[in-house]
């Protein structure tokens, strides 16, 4: 039984033996992002709309942290189809959320 896995695992840099620095960094960054968001909100640092946008950006950064520091996002045999799939999923997520919010605000009369 042949296996296609004679090729190497892409995005994999050997089994890490020493202190798990990347994990610790990931944790620290996620904590920093969290507290940053919390602080911005508590301090009412900006106008409402801008504030919401900024904390959303911070949340998106948290996705990046999880994907790259914890989820071994780039590892794959052969083409990285899961990266493409996830990218597509993000596009559709944005379409659904943005589209629905836009549709359901009925010409901007409601304050959703």
């Amino acid at each position: 039984m042949s296996s296609e896995h004679h090729e190497e695992l892409r995005g994999f840099h050997g089994i890490h033996r020493g202190f798990p620095w990347s994990h610790v960094v990931g944790l620290v960054v996620s904590l920093v992002l969290t507290f940053a968001a919390l602080w911005l909100v508590q301090a009412h640092a900006m106008p409402h709309g801008l504030l919401l946008a900024v904390i959303l950006v911070l949340a998106v950064l948290q996705i990046v942290v999880q994907l790259f520091f914890f989820m071994h996002f780039l590892e794959s045999y052969g083409p990285r189809y899961h990266v493409t799939s996830l990218a597509l999923a993000f596009v559709f997520t944005v379409c659904i959320i943005a589209g629905s919010l836009w549709i359901m605000t009925f010409g901007g009369e409601q304050t959703y």
């Binding site: 559709f92 379409c95 359901m104 009925f106 010409g107």
Partner: peptide, 18 residues
């Protein structure tokens, strides 16, 4: 086909832009 769903309820009247 992810960007067209509203055509099933145009008559909801979401506004000319939508």
């Amino acid at each position: 086909s992810y960007l067209v769903w509203l055509h099933h309820f145009f008559t909801m009247g979401a506004g000319p832009g939508v």
